[in-house]
Computed example of a mutant assay.
Amino acid sequence: MKGKWPIALEAAAIWTPEGRETVAAMVAAGRITAEESEGLGLTAVPVADVPAPDMAVRAAERALEAAGRGARDIGLVAHGWLYHQGHDFWSPAHYIADRIGARTAFPVGVQQLSNAGAAAIGIAVDKLAADPRLTAALVTTADRFCPPGFDRWAADYGVVYGDAGTAVLLRRYDPARSRATLLLRSLTFVTAAEYESMYRGRDAFSPAPLWHGGRVDVRRPKKAYLEMHGGIAQFSESARECVRSVLLQALAEAGVEPQDPRIRCVALPRLSDGVLEMMYLPVLDGLVSGGVLRERENSGHLGAGDMLANLAHISSNSELHPGDFAVVIGGGGGFTWSCAVVEAVQSPASF
């Protein structure tokens, strides 16, 4: 749908709790080894004592305040998450809509593992393009990776999970009235669904959550998958092809050449060196202009929120001038990879 671009990204925000768990403390406590800590690319992760949906509400309130907008004209609230939202049989998207005052908005929940935030943006963009009655859409994410169901330091290979809420406010772009900090020029997705079994392994389908062992253990099914498929090489090759494809599709849809000097940065998921080297960094080498942005040192992987958190960082980055571009790459188990291209714009002085 070529006519839908650009979409105004009026504000992007992240809310992180004050609590922290540090790598040094985890090594000292024997939670991880010194060898495991190498290459994580972080010193600490945020740890929340509030429910995940409340973090989304706080991020949404920040985004609305930054945009100078109220919630009454928001027609869609799309909330993405990876892990438990505080109740077993419940809609966090409705809760968020109610708490921010968007009580007549259409709330929708999006679960696509770590790509849920990007998928929620995609739903919002398509809804804005297709429904002339919709004037604004809010996208949020939030995850809280807490015991007893989740050990943020040991649940996965090469990933440490941090707690945060994120939000972006989107509108159809009107140059005369826009309050945009960024223009979303494209958002593309590439899927390789044959890899869904990497998060299933040999485990049988269960009748209730946390049936296999009482906590989330991503390592068990991944280990089984690698044993059944002779290692990681085939997946790594396929993943790189998908990342390359989604990146080039996004740039082409945005009308930007890969070596365009206006591309100032390429933001990557907030993952360890090993994971980034397996599927992302080799693709970027020599292909695309712009430096690599790895904003993970004090956040870790924010579940569904990496893309939105990176957009929040980019929107507040003073080094990005009007006309400059940033590329934001995401991905999540299943597997689906995503890529957004945004352009910095000069907001009008008289809002």
Rank of each mutant, 00 (worst) to 15 (best):
P6F: 07
A11L: 08
R20S: 01
A24Y: 08
A24M: 07
A25N: 07
A29M: 06
A29P: 14
R31D: 07
T33Y: 15
A34T: 15
E36L: 13
V50E: 13
P51Q: 12
V57P: 03
L64C: 10
R72M: 11
D73Q: 13
G80R: 01
G86Y: 07
A93F: 13
Y95A: 06
R99W: 08
A102Q: 15
F106E: 12
V110N: 01
G117K: 02
G117I: 01
A118Q: 00
A119K: 08
G122A: 05
I123Q: 05
A124M: 15
D126A: 09
K127Q: 11
L128N: 10
L128K: 08
P132S: 13
L134R: 04
L134Y: 07
T135N: 13
V139L: 09
T141S: 02
D143V: 04
D151L: 04
R152T: 04
A155N: 01
T166E: 00
L170A: 09
R171C: 14
A176N: 15
R179L: 15
R185F: 11
S186N: 10
T191H: 06
A192V: 13
Y199H: 00
R202C: 07
A208Y: 13
L210C: 03
L210N: 03
L210S: 00
W211Q: 05
D217E: 00
D217W: 00
P221K: 00
K223Y: 14
K223W: 11
A224P: 01
Y225N: 01
L226H: 08
M228S: 09
I232G: 02
I232M: 09
Q234H: 14
F235G: 06
S238F: 04
S238H: 13
L251W: 11
L251A: 07
E253S: 06
E257G: 07
P261S: 10
L276T: 04
E277W: 05
Y280K: 02
L281E: 07
G286E: 08
R296I: 10
N298S: 14
N298Q: 08
A304Y: 00
M307N: 02
A309I: 14
L311F: 12
H313Q: 10
I314S: 03
S316V: 06
N317P: 10
H321Q: 13
P322T: 12
D324T: 14
V327F: 10
A340V: 09
E343P: 07
